[in-house]
Design a protein around this nucleic acid. Structure first.
Lengths: 197, 197
DNA sequence: ATTAAGTTTAACCATTTGGTTAACAAAGAT
DNA sequence: ATCTTTGTTAACCAAATGGTTAAACTTAAT
């Protein structure tokens, strides 16, 4: 693995657990097992390094989401596929949702930058589809945006609020992952039950 | 307003928008319009000041939640009351959910500390009630923990991921608040529809 | 009026932090 | 072989940051 890759992975790890302001360049260097000057040699500044890591993290998630949202599948199938693929993916990067949410809130300038990316999650087609299926009488009348929020919330929240959740319902890390595994079916059932006619 | 209160409110504001590591003692002092030394005079250290603010923030939310969760109301009514009261409350402190989640994740030592508090959110009675109502045939068989997660997720997520949500579904701050107002009824309907027999 | 306690300020301090530099090593190109 | 580019290191630097101090001011009790 090249030095640049080592730095990138170390930065990903450290930024994810400490956030941008909490992360230390020295810690990233140590984690990568290289000299701190190399961080600047390859990435110029903390901001640039962070940007690279963040956009990459987001870029991993968004295309998957878009592919599902923009397919020709019927709504119920899309919901099932989305929940499944999102949870499977995030179980490999359990702190990604919290990382993205946190930095989107802390660096509002960032929102604008990534929204220009073609890889941004774009739910417009899905929103129209919901309206169509309501019109066709397949699902109950419902606000498309609320439904979209429901789907995101049910899938992403447990990961984003991971430590809080573990603390409040008092479960171990293993139990948490098991619960998330079960959740793949649970969410689809729950949402589809709620909206099907 | 006393100097100590000024500091506390300023700290609340700054910690909430910048997080613990991002917050600067000088910025808090400026925000409060007082000398930085006063922060240490009244609160000893950044950690102590943060702790005071965080536990207070949490202490505002938890008792409300517990009162509803531990009442004698039937499940459907509890869900309605919780969603209503949580969203109403949080609309006054829109960054509270993100703040709590973020700091619970970034300072894991903190989790232990606040879980000892009697004011901690305690869902055990609600979890039992869900099982009981399943036994009584009022609602469909379902994992109580998953249902609890659903309720939290649907209510808290949009606030926690506020900037991301606004960006993705492309709405203004006003539209966001309107959506949250509508959400008070939407969530209860959605969940009750999903679980009622 | 004096004292004592609490409150407030400006200046200061040690450490941390992101970032730079200059020398050095490795590797390819000529 | 030598030159040039790229990669790497240790030492260094200026700014920022959390925290301290000693003196000054305010208030209320004696």
């Amino acid at each position: 693995m090249s030095t640049e890759e080592k730095i990138f992975e170390a930065a990903f790890k450290v930024f994810q657990s400490k956030g941008f302001t909490g992360a230390r360049m020295q810690e990233i260097a140590d984690e990568a097992g290289i000299n701190k000057a190399m961080l600047h040699y390859f990435f110029r500044s903390k901001e640039k390094l962070f940007e690279a890591v963040f956009l990459n993290a987001f870029g991993k998630l968004a295309p998957q989401v878009n592919e599902i949202f923009n397919s020709e599948d019927p709504l119920f199938e899309k919901i099932e596929k989305f929940v499944h693929s999102y949870i499977s993916f995030v179980m490999d990067y359990p702190f990604l949702p919290q990382f993205i949410i946190q930095e989107m809130n802390n660096n509002p300038e960032f929102v604008a930058k990534f929204l220009k990316d073609e890889k941004r999650p774009n739910p417009s087609k899905l929103l129209k589809q919901i309206e169509t299926e309501i019109g066709l009488g397949i699902i109950k009348p419902i606000s498309p945006k609320q439904l979209l929020l429901d789907i995101f919330a049910m899938t992403a929240f447990p990961f984003a609020a991971q430590n809080l959740v573990k603390g409040i319902i008092n479960i171990s890390n293993d139990e948490f992952f098991q619960l998330m595994e079960e959740r793949k079916i649970h969410i689809s059932e729950q949402i589809i039950n709620a909206i099907k006619k």
